[in-house]
């Protein structure tokens, strides 16, 4: 039954994608189709990566309210990117081949993310709220540092950072899409392979360990996957804090299970659905551009508060 619900989501995404591509299609059809195709692909990639990353991260943190964005994972990515421009110079950065750049940034995020959040998680495993708050404040600090570096830069370098960080769904480099797609695919397969062990890990650290799970190592693996997925999403469109929360919560609600083998793909599909539907609604039906991110933040934030209050009153 659970599998059937995931299939429903697949069906919905396909139908919505078709609508997105073909709605009021006019000549020159080939051109418009390829334009829309690129946009659709990036929406799906970002939504899926964010959804899956959030479910993984929630299991690592043992908390259903968190997203990588809330604890500053994407702030770390912004920080790395800015630091890279600052150290290479605007021209040096711009002349790097985009594939190499992307892979390097992803690698750097995996490394620093593991160091920072892995250390935090393992050290503060018993004091969850403090760990979350540390992450939140760390995020604020990293954003501040990135901004400070951007202010210190020459205007030409600043322009490079701006372009790197605030790409929109329309203006995504096709090369990047291919790498992002490959990374997303690989990370998804890896996450699904970990799924049964993640089910055990969700019981909590001590319980999972007394069942013989190599908990800490599994958490590091999951965290590395989170880093890859966050890098994919952030590199394509910039940070979106609450999309993952929406996707993960809705996916759990729809599948009604704790099993990662079902929740992970459902969250990925849900993230993609939210973005495609949102973009379609805003752009085609209301003809408003780029309001999507603000709306996702708004509703995601509301959902967060609702979850906090509901959890507390149980």
């Amino acid at each position: 039954m659970v599998e059937r619900r995931v299939l429903w989501l697949v069906g919905a995404l396909i139908a919505l994608s078709a609508l997105f591509l073909l709605w009021q299609l006019r000549a020159p059809m080939g051109f418009i189709l390829s334009l829309r195709g690129t946009k659709l692909a990036s929406l799906i990639l970002v939504g899926a990566a964010t959804g899956i990353a959030t479910v993984l991260f929630q299991t690592v943190a043992g908390n259903r309210l968190l997203t990588p964005g809330i604890v500053g994972f994407d702030a770390l990515f912004v920080f790395i990117q800015t630091a890279l421009v600052l150290s290479l110079g605007g021209i040096g950065y711009a002349t790097l081949p985009s594939v190499a750049k992307f892979l390097f940034e992803t690698g750097a995020l995996v490394g620093t993310g593991l160091l920072l959040f892995g250390g935090l998680l393992l050290r503060d495993a018993r004091d969850l709220t403090r760990m979350i708050l540390t992450g939140v404040i760390l995020g604020v600090m990293l954003r501040g540092l990135a901004e400070m570096m951007q202010r210190v830069m020459a205007p030409s370098e600043f322009a490079v950072v701006q372009q790197a960080l605030f790409a929109t769904f329309g203006a995504v480099d096709t090369n990047q899409l291919w790498i992002a797609g490959a990374l997303l695919g690989a990370a998804t397969v890896a996450a699904l392979r970990l799924a049964p062990a993640l089910d055990v890990a969700a019981l909590g650290r001590d319980r999972a360990r007394s069942l013989g799970l190599g908990y800490d190592f599994l958490m590091l693996q999951a965290l590395a996957l989170v880093a890859v997925l966050v890098a994919v999403a952030t590199a394509l469109v910039g940070p979106m804090t609450f999309l993952g929360l929406l996707a993960a919560s809705l996916a759990r609600e729809i599948t009604g299970t704790h099993r990662h083998a079902a929740v992970l793909p459902a969250a990925g599909l849900m993230g993609a659905l939210i973005l495609v539907a949102g973009q379609f609604g805003f752009e085609r039906l209301l003809s408003r551009q780029s309001a999507l991110a603000v709306m996702v933040e708004f509703f995601g934030g509301l959902l967060f508060l609702l979850l906090v209050l509901r959890r507390r009153s149980v």
Partner: peptide, 27 residues
């Protein structure tokens, strides 16, 4: 609605609450 025993939760809730108000202001 946030219990006293968990004082660290309150700033997180406040941050998100502020985020929602910000999103409205930006809109």
């Amino acid at each position: 609605r946030v219990p006293m025993q968990d004082p660290l939760l309150l700033p997180i809730v406040g941050l998100i609450y502020g985020g929602i108000l910000s999103a409205m202001a930006i809109w």
